[in-house]
Simulated assay, not measured.
Amino acid sequence: MSAPNIKLAANLTLDVADARPPTKPEANAQAQVGPVPIPHEHKVHPTNPGGENATLTFVGTATTLLEWRGLRIMTDPNFLHAGDHVHLGPGVTAKRLTNPSIPLNQLPPIHLVLLSHYHEDHFDKLVEDRLRRDLPIVTTPHAAHHLTTAQYKGEPFTAVTALDTWEAADIIARDAKFRVTAMPGKHVQTGMMEMVNKAIGALPPTNGWMVELFGAERKPYRIYISGDTLMVDELKTIPQNFPHVDLMLVHLGGTTIPAPNIPLLMVTMDAEQGIQLVHLINPDVTIPIHYDDYDVFKSPLKDFQDLVTQAGLDQKVVYLNRGDQYSFKV
């Protein structure tokens, strides 16, 4: 399997000096820009700490805040609370079991959203209603179509960049320069099930992301975000283009639909597939996310922790509770 070519699809310039509130005041009279959230617990590289100048805060589900050089990137915003429900496909709903570590209307200014796919547990109705319409969003072509087309939205989003697999966007924000490349990902395995899904549109297309932060050295700091995917053959092409990854955020949970007690289809990695991905990508540090927030998650975090220990990888995995922060050096 040859390494695919990366195509530069967009150049974006972000204004980080005058970031406006992430929520629309007219949608919520109490909306306000909150201060930078105080992390519940700080964590650093397990074996090589020092010189930290960037942070990653785990909010919940697949929602994280990446901060570096005054730039704040939010991944897959999901701010529903315990007891709220999301729609995941025809006849499939899921109930949230946890609360995010910070309410939506208390977020600090957000400069960019990375949205892996258009699913309500990654971009819920509350978020879709209240995010300001000119907030830059990088996402899949499928999600971009829904976010920007008046057919679907009374007030469409206006700053959406669509990246298909292996397309990249170079982004400059004041003195922060980075590149986002869309990585392969699939909710369903290649074959008959994939063809059926495409025909009925039950599960949306999904991306992973490779985020490259360019510091003083020529070598970028690479963060691979798996997105909601299974361990499919397409992932094997990633190390060919990116032989070294500094940090990996892996979406786990073994999401099973329509429910764990009726396991007809698993659409995200369980613990076993997650450890396979760790071996494939071989990042310096792995942080598991997306594993216990909804009642459709079948594979608990402990299963992944046990496999990490069996593989002798405890010193290469950092576990964050909601509200915890990982500090690292670019």
Score class of each variant (00 low, 15 high):
residue 229 T to E: 00
residue 159 A to W: 05
residue 108 P to N: 07
residue 45 H to K: 10
residue 1 M to K: 14
residue 112 L to T: 01
residue 135 L to S: 04
residue 193 M to A: 13
residue 127 V to N: 09
residue 21 P to S: 13
residue 163 L to K: 09
residue 193 M to T: 13
residue 94 A to D: 06
residue 115 L to Q: 00
residue 316 K to Y: 10
residue 118 Y to E: 00
residue 209 W to T: 05
residue 45 H to D: 12
residue 134 D to H: 14
residue 232 V to M: 10
residue 210 M to T: 06
residue 98 T to G: 07
residue 212 E to R: 12
residue 218 R to T: 11
residue 98 T to R: 14
residue 321 N to L: 02
residue 168 A to L: 04
residue 316 K to T: 10
residue 63 T to R: 05
residue 26 E to R: 09
residue 79 F to V: 07
residue 252 L to Q: 11
residue 324 D to V: 08
residue 280 L to M: 15
residue 254 G to Y: 03
residue 252 L to R: 02
residue 39 P to E: 08
residue 181 T to P: 10
residue 155 E to Q: 15
residue 192 M to N: 07
residue 24 K to P: 00
residue 138 V to D: 01
residue 1 M to E: 06
residue 195 M to Y: 10
residue 83 G to Q: 05
residue 211 V to A: 02
residue 202 A to H: 12
residue 173 A to V: 02
residue 321 N to Y: 05
residue 135 L to R: 11
residue 70 G to K: 02
residue 309 T to W: 00
residue 69 R to F: 06
residue 245 V to N: 04
residue 208 G to C: 08
residue 90 P to A: 14
residue 178 F to I: 01
residue 113 V to N: 07
residue 49 P to W: 11
residue 310 Q to A: 14
residue 58 F to K: 10
residue 47 T to A: 12
residue 293 D to M: 04
residue 241 N to F: 10
residue 40 H to W: 02
residue 118 Y to F: 15
residue 17 A to G: 05
residue 239 P to Q: 11
residue 100 P to D: 02
residue 36 V to A: 14
residue 303 D to E: 13
residue 38 I to R: 12
residue 56 L to D: 04
residue 280 L to R: 08
residue 216 A to V: 11
residue 4 P to H: 15
residue 68 W to M: 06
residue 196 V to K: 07
residue 230 L to G: 12
residue 22 P to H: 03
residue 301 L to W: 07
residue 233 D to F: 12
residue 270 D to L: 08
residue 239 P to M: 11
residue 297 F to K: 06
residue 105 N to F: 13
residue 182 A to E: 05
residue 172 I to H: 14
residue 110 I to K: 01
residue 154 G to C: 06
residue 67 E to W: 07
residue 113 V to P: 01
residue 158 T to C: 05
residue 157 F to A: 08
residue 119 H to F: 06
residue 294 Y to R: 05
residue 156 P to M: 10
residue 17 A to E: 13
residue 56 L to I: 15
residue 175 D to S: 13
residue 172 I to F: 04
residue 315 Q to R: 14
residue 170 D to C: 01
residue 165 T to N: 09
residue 185 G to C: 11
residue 311 A to H: 12
residue 323 G to W: 08
residue 197 N to T: 09
residue 223 I to K: 01
residue 268 T to P: 04
residue 247 L to H: 08
residue 53 N to C: 04
residue 63 T to Y: 08
residue 247 L to E: 07
residue 262 I to V: 13
residue 164 D to A: 14
residue 291 Y to F: 14
residue 131 L to A: 05
residue 134 D to F: 06
residue 146 H to F: 15
residue 34 G to E: 03
residue 12 L to Y: 02
residue 120 E to P: 00
residue 21 P to Q: 08
